[in-house]
Amino acid sequence: MVKYALFLGCQIPMRLPSIEIASRRVFNILGLEAVDLLGYSCCPEPVVSRLLDETAALAVSARNLTLAEDLGLDMLTLCNGCYETLAEANEALKHDAERRSEVNTILRRYGREYAGKVDVKHIVEALYEDVGLNGIRKHVTKPLKIRAALHYGCHLYREYKTSDIMRKPNMMREIAMQTGVDMIDYGLERLCCGYPSMQANEEFSLKHRLLPKLSRMRSKGAEAIITICPACTIQFEIGQVMLRSYGFQFNMPCINLMELLALSFGVPHRDLHLELHRSPVQQLVQKVLGVS
């Protein structure tokens, strides 16, 4: 059995617990052992926190990495932002001895030290590489007949192994295809959802990032959006509500890949608590499964 230290991050347990529920169910079914990383903190956020104080941000990431190192396990993230933060920090700490020494000086005040023995993996890498598409497909008992549009999320393009930025997005696409969804190509898959620019300019973020994506998805006949990143999920769900004040009406369900997998594996939708979503995911699933 493949075993990882599970880094849940902040957004999933606090704002999107249905993704955590679905992930744990999927891990059980696929035989992926995810050990909870007790005492973890925010990863921290990959851009703003590093801009504010790079050394402090690196020390926070390093502390999280030491928790996985204590367990002797590689770290698994469910969030694109956590992935980039922790993988970026890990690269810096592994390859820059001066930086590692500086950060370890801080960590030693708290009785910790990072030796650089951990690898950081995104969930799509673990599913694709450790379980494999065949391993996923054999558990699909309830293929989902949904016309869906994929959104990968910007941090998923961060690469350390190759220059091919589509390596992980292609994994995500292939994994999603195993669930039986009818994938809609809408041509703006790479475009950012607008979550990062929301912090600087709300109107720009909604009207020039989120709106073009939603409009194109709808015009191509998508019934749902598939995401993997919780920040993107929040942008799609809350952003649709916010767009109403600008005169644009959208109410498209935004489902996480882990929820999609859980449903296709036959996990009862009630167990996943899809009602916690801020978009009509529950209604879509009830319609597709023909249940109330």
Partner: peptide
Amino acid sequence: SRCTGCLFCEVACSYYHFKRFDL
């Protein structure tokens, strides 16, 4: 062909030079 339009480049640039998140 690699850009996603996330504008983290603009966010980082404005903060580095002006300590503001202003595109």
